[in-house]
Amino acid sequence: MTRILLVLGVLFLWAPVVLLALYAFSASREPFEWGGLSLRWFVALAGNERVLEAAWLSVRIAAASATLATLLGGVLGWVLARHGPFRGRALFGALAGAPLVLPEVVTGLALLLVFVGMQTLFGWPAQRGAGTVLVAHASLGAAYAGVLIQSRIAALDPRLEEAAMGLGASRLAVLRTVTLPMLAPGLGAAWTLAFVLSLDDVVLASFVSGPGGTTLPVFLFSQLRLGMTPEANALAVVTLGIAGLLLAGFAWFRRRA
């Protein structure tokens, strides 16, 4: 019984995605209509400057915001795991975790109002766009990274650091040669999570973006409201292909390491 429902559930999750990918190879002008085998929609996609531009911007914002999110999440996780019971710890924890549970519309609206207010008061940020999207994504990513890194720091064996210190290593040397290498997988996971969150976000980016800040999901969302072309199918195949290659590469790398 559960086996049958599991298979049905997986089919439900996969069916539209598989259809989407299959019809990318159809020559028909209508999406999801078979018109013979063709790669014309991949050619059209490769020539679509607006998609390519938005995709490149998305990747850059995702990489930069994930890096910022990992640094800040590392600080948040470190303070929560290692600073003991300091004054205001409950508030600190609640604020650090809040972006995880707040609905995106609320976060998006709230961040935008702050950006507008700062612009009126200090003239900065002078214009909303890629920069404000980056900060908004970093704020969301840092919350996820913070939770993840906090649990990894809490799971560290403190005796290893004590041993290094007992052997005369300075605090900085302990951090560099013992703590950080042990945390590296956790930091990598946090970066990847923040990267994917940024790459998939529509709502935050729609609120805080401005001229020159149209990310790929925002662009696709606006296109999809107007109508659909088989270029979306081709894009899905390309995305799945890249993600699949990255996963395979990662699995291969881990097996060797």
Binding site: L224, M228, A232, A236
Partner: peptide, 11 residues
């Protein structure tokens, strides 16, 4: 892996 908006495009 295929992205949220594209999954909605599939539907």
């Amino acid at each position: 892996l295929c992205g949220f908006v594209l999954r909605m495009a599939a539907w």
